[in-house]
C-alpha cells in the first residue's frame, strides 16, 4: 500500500504569538516549531496501515528549510521517505495554492491513501485535505476518529453534532485525521538515527509545474480584542454566598440565565 501523509510545521501550541507592528504577519523569532498535532495522528495511522498491509509511507511538506526537521520527525517515527516543497513563492500560500502543490507532488508517484490533519493549528483553516481530494478527483472523509480498510473498501467514523457517522468509501481517498483516531508513537532513538539516512526529495513549485496562485490572503493580522477584566466574586467568604452572588450577576448583569 502506498501511503502519503501531508505534514505541516506549526508553532508549538504553547508558543506566544506576537503580531508584527505593521500587521503583515507574526513575529517568528523565538518560536519553537513542531509537527501539526493532527498530522501526528495521520503519520501514526499511516504507519499502522503499513505494518498491517506492507508498503511505503511518504511524507510531504510545503514550507521553508526549517520544515526539514518536521519531515525528519515523521521519518524517525517510521515513515520511509520525504518530499520537501520549498519555494518562496509558496511561503504565504493559502489553502488552495498549498493543495495545488501537494497534488502535483502526490501525482508523480502511485498512492492508495492520503492522510492530512483535520486542520493546521496555525492558520486554523481546515481546507487543504478536502481541496487536495478534489484536485485529485478522489473522495475524502474528514475528521476521522476511526478507520478500517478491507481490500478497496474504506470505512471511517466521523463525529457530527449529536451523532457519529459511519461512512463508506473506496481507495484511493483522502482521510483527515482528528484526535481519537489513535495515540501517536514517539520517535525511538534508533528511529532518529535511521531517519538521517532516509531519502528526502527537494522540489520547487516550478519543478512541479504549479503556478502557486493563492485565492485568498490575510490582509492584516491583529492582536485579539482585549477582554475587560473579570470580577472575582467575594460577596462573603462562604461558597454558598459566592454561589448566590454568581447566580445574581448572571441573571441581572449578564442576563444569560
Amino acid at each position: 500500500m502506498n501511503i502519503v501523509v501531508c505534514v505541516k510545521q506549526v508553532p508549538d501550541t504553547e508558543a506566544q504569538i506576537k503580531v508584527k507592528g505593521d500587521g503583515s504577519g507574526i513575529e517568528e523569532g523565538g518560536i519553537k516549531w513542531v509537527m501539526n498535532p493532527y498530522d501526528e495522528y495521520g503519520v501514526e495511522e499511516a504507519l499502522r496501515l503499513k505494518e498491517k498491509f506492507g508498503g511505503e509511507v511518504t511524507v510531504v511538506c510545503v514550507g521553508p528549510a526549517r520544515t526539514m526537521e518536521t519531515i525528519r520527525t515523521a521519518l524517525a517515527m517510521g515513515a520511509d521517505k520525504g518530499i520537501q516543497i520549498d519555494d518562496p513563492a509558496l511561503y504565504n500560500a493559502d489553502a488552495y495554492a498549498t493543495a495545488t502543490a501537494l497534488a502535483a507532488a502526490v501525482k508523480s508517484a502511485p498512492y492508495d491513501i492520503i492522510f492530512c490533519g483535520q486542520r493546521a493549528i496555525d492558520d486554523d483553516s481546515g481546507q487543504v485535505g478536502s481541496i487536495l481530494a478534489e484536485l485529485l478527483g478522489i473522495p475524502s472523509v474528514t475528521f476521522a476518529t476511526k478507520l478500517e480498510i478491507d481490500g478497496q473498501k474504506v470505512k471511517a467514523v466521523r463525529p457530527i453534532e449529536g451523532a457519529q457517522l459511519v461512512i463508506e468509501t473506496s481507495l484511493p481517498c483522502v482521510i483527515t485525521a482528528t484526535k481519537g483516531l489513535n495515540e501517536p508513537r514517539y520517535a525511538s532513538l534508533p528511529g532518529i538515527m535511521k531517519a538521517k539516512k532516509k531519502p528526502v526529495d527537494m522540489k520547487t513549485a516550478a519543478a512541479l509545474g504549479v503556478a502557486a496562485e493563492s485565492k485568498s490572503k490575510v490582509a492584516k493580522f491583529t492582536p485579539p480584542p482585549a477582554r475587560p477584566p473579570g470580577k472575582i466574586i467575594c460577596a462573603d467568604d462562604t461558597p454558598e454566598g459566592k454561589a448566590a452572588e454568581l447566580a445574581k450577576l448572571l441573571r441581572e448583569e449578564a442576563k444569560v440565565i
Binding site: Y96, D124, Q127, S130, L132, A133, E134, F143, S216
Partner: peptide, 23 residues
C-alpha cells in the same frame, strides 16, 4: 462552520477553485 459545513465548504473551495476564510 458546523461539522457538516466545515466538510462541505472545504470541498467546495476545491471544486470552485477559490479561496475561503474559515470559522
Amino acid at each position: 462552520a458546523s461539522a457538516q459545513g466545515k466538510d462541505l465548504s472545504a470541498a467546495l473551495v476545491g471544486k470552485l477553485a477559490t479561496g475561503m476564510a474559515t470559522d
